[in-house]
Structures are given as structure tokens and as C-alpha cells.
């Protein structure tokens, strides 16, 4: 017997729980409101899709030479034609097809390099941050030494020693580019390691490897993904530079850096030969960087300025 009878609307309001913001949903909402992340993610998605579908959508064989069809300009120029939308190179190979297959090389190198360097760097960073003391001093020293080495020069020399090839470039870059992973995971681990849940896990007798794998790693995953994204762009740029200098991916593979190097002698009269792969490279790197910056903003909104 109550004086104030609850209305049907109030009852309904009481029945529905207050809107619960799950962390995943909040993250999704922040992502959808972040312009840079959407643009970067969108461009990257298109490039990845085109790279994966290259055998289906490429109009020609990227390796098929036809010397009677050399240096056809792209379709928007006077002598261009729709058979070769982006024209042909000095050996008469279809530029669009080479560009599509070239995206596969860049993405492959970016991904595998980051897997190798990320594993090395994360392992070093987590150990340095978790154990501290002498381990930290030794690992920081190794990172300092690596930073002192001129990276392009050492990459070129090592690529020449292991043999310039797709595999050679991936191994060399993977073994060289772990420095930022180590620096970032080290400070992230230091922040996490003081947490109560780490102390709790230690108290119930968690082994160190298990503690690192199941308590620390999941909690430093966000900064790690951001570094991985930005380092992927770094690896792609370095591969292009190595291939441009002739010590990276070797012909006839359609690496974008190599396409620019091969087009260099024609750039005075046909600037599009270098402009097309250069623009593709800029778009890919821009997309990955925008995605990485965006991910940093949405996963760590408190660090935004």
C-alpha cells in the first residue's frame, strides 16, 4: 500500500538497467568519431583489399614484357589508352598490374618485419622493465648501441652480405628495427609492473614467464599495437629506399622502390613513371601512420594533447 503509485513509465525505467558502457563499445565509439583513424583505416583497407585481390583484378601479367608497347603513358595523357590505364614501363609491362602486385611486397615486408622486430623488441623491453636493475642497464645499453648505428648504411651493407632479395631485406630490417619496440614496452612495463594485480599474481605463486605472458603483455598491448603500426610504415619506407638504391628487392619483382629506381632515367620526359609508384607509397605510409596515430588517441585518450 503506497501513497504514490509508481507509474508504468517509472516502472519501465527501473526495469531497464542504466546504459552500461562496455570498454569495447566505448573504444568503438571513440574510433568512429576519430577522423584520422577512419581515413587511415579506410585507405589501408582499400590497399590491402587490392593487394589481396591482385591476381583477380590486375588487367595484365605484371611480368609480361612486350617491347613493342614500351613507355605507354597513362590514360589521362594524350597518347594513353584504356588497355593500360597507368601506362607501361620501359620493358612494356603494365604499370597498374605491377603497382597492384607491388602493394603485396610492401605489405608483406611491413608485416613480417614488424613480427620479427616486434618479438625481439618486446622481449627486451618487457625484461628491462620488469626485472629492472642490471638487466635494464644491459638492455638499455644494447638499445643505445643500436641507435648509434647509421641504420640505412648498416641495412645496405647487411643486405649486401646476406644477399639482396625479398627474404634478405625482411631478415635485415627485422633484426634492425626493434629499438622503438624495446623503448616503448620498457616504459609501459614499468608503469604496469607496480600494479596491485601484479603483486596479487606474484602472491598466489605465478611463475615469472606466466606473469609476463598473462598479466603484463595483455596490459601493454595497446601501446604495442600503436608502435607496431608506426614501425610497419618505417619498414615499408626503408624497404623502398633499399630497393631504390639497388640493394633491396631485386628485379623483376615489382617493389615500388625498385619501380621508382627503374623509372629514374625516364623521369625528365615521363615524370609519371616515378610519380605513380611514389604516390602509391605516400598513400600507404600516410594511411598506416594515420591509423597508428588514431589508435594511440583512442586507446590512450588521457595522453592526448
Amino acid at each position: 500500500m503506497t501513497d504514490i503509485a509508481p507509474s508504468a513509465a517509472d516502472a519501465a525505467a527501473l526495469d531497464t538497467p542504466p546504459p552500461r558502457r562496455s570498454p569495447g563499445l566505448a573504444l568503438l565509439r571513440r574510433s568512429l568519431r576519430h577522423g584520422g583513424l577512419l581515413v587511415g583505416g579506410g585507405i589501408l583497407f582499400i590497399i590491402v583489399a587490392m593487394a589481396l585481390a591482385a591476381p583477380l583484378i590486375a588487367p595484365h601479367d605484371p611480368y609480361a614484357q612486350d617491347l613493342s608497347r614500351r613507355m605507354i603513358p597513362p590514360v589521362w595523357q594524350v597518347k594513353g589508352n584504356w588497355d593500360y590505364i597507368l601506362g607501361t614501363d620501359k620493358l612494356g609491362r603494365d604499370y597498374l598490374s605491377r603497382l597492384l602486385y607491388g602493394a603485396r611486397i610492401s605489405l608483406l615486408i611491413g608485416t613480417v618485419t614488424v613480427l620479427i622486430s616486434g618479438t625481439i623488441g618486446t622481449l627486451m623491453g618487457v625484461c628491462a622493465g620488469y626485472f629492472g636493475g642490471k638487466v635494464d642497464a644491459v638492455l638499455s645499453y644494447i638499445v643505445t648501441t643500436r641507435l648509434a648505428l647509421p641504420v640505412v648504411l648498416v641495412a645496405l651493407a647487411s643486405a649486401a652480405l646476406v644477399g639482396s632479395s625479398l627474404h634478405g631485406v625482411i631478415i635485415v630490417l627485422g633484426l634492425l628495427l626493434w629499438d622503438r619496440f624495446a623503448v616503448v614496452t620498457r616504459s609501459a612495463t614499468q608503469q604496469v609492473a607496480g600494479g596491485d594485480y601484479i603483486a596479487a599474481a606474484k602472491a598466489i605463486g605465478c611463475s615469472t614467464p606466466r606473469l609476463i605472458l598473462s598479466e603484463i603483455l595483455p596490459n601493454i598491448l595497446n601501446p604495442l599495437i600503436v608502435v607496431a603500426t608506426l614501425e610497419m610504415a618505417h619498414a615499408i619506407l626503408l624497404e623502398a629506399a633499399l630497393s631504390f638504391l639497388g640493394l633491396g628487392v631485386q628485379p623483376p619483382l615489382p617493389s615500388w622502390g625498385l619501380m621508382i629506381a627503374e623509372g629514374k632515367q625516364y623521369m625528365f620526359f615521363s615524370p609519371w613513371v616515378i610519380a605513380i609508384p611514389a604516390v602509391a607509397l605516400v598513400f600507404l605510409v600516410l594511411a598506416i601512420n594515420l591509423l597508428g596515430d588514431g589508435l594511440r588517441d583512442v586507446t590512450a585518450p588521457e595522453n592526448r594533447n
Binding site: 623502398a240 621508382i260 629514374k264 611514389a278 607509397l281 605516400v282 605510409v285 601512420n289
Partner: peptide, 12 residues
């Protein structure tokens, strides 16, 4: 700026 490789900028 970060997305433009040095050698592309040079050639440009």
C-alpha cells in the same frame, strides 16, 4: 611530411 620518403621528395 612523415609519409613522403626522402628519395621521392628529392626526385620530386
Amino acid at each position: 611530411g612523415q609519409a613522403i620518403p626522402t628519395f621521392c621528395l628529392g626526385l620530386g
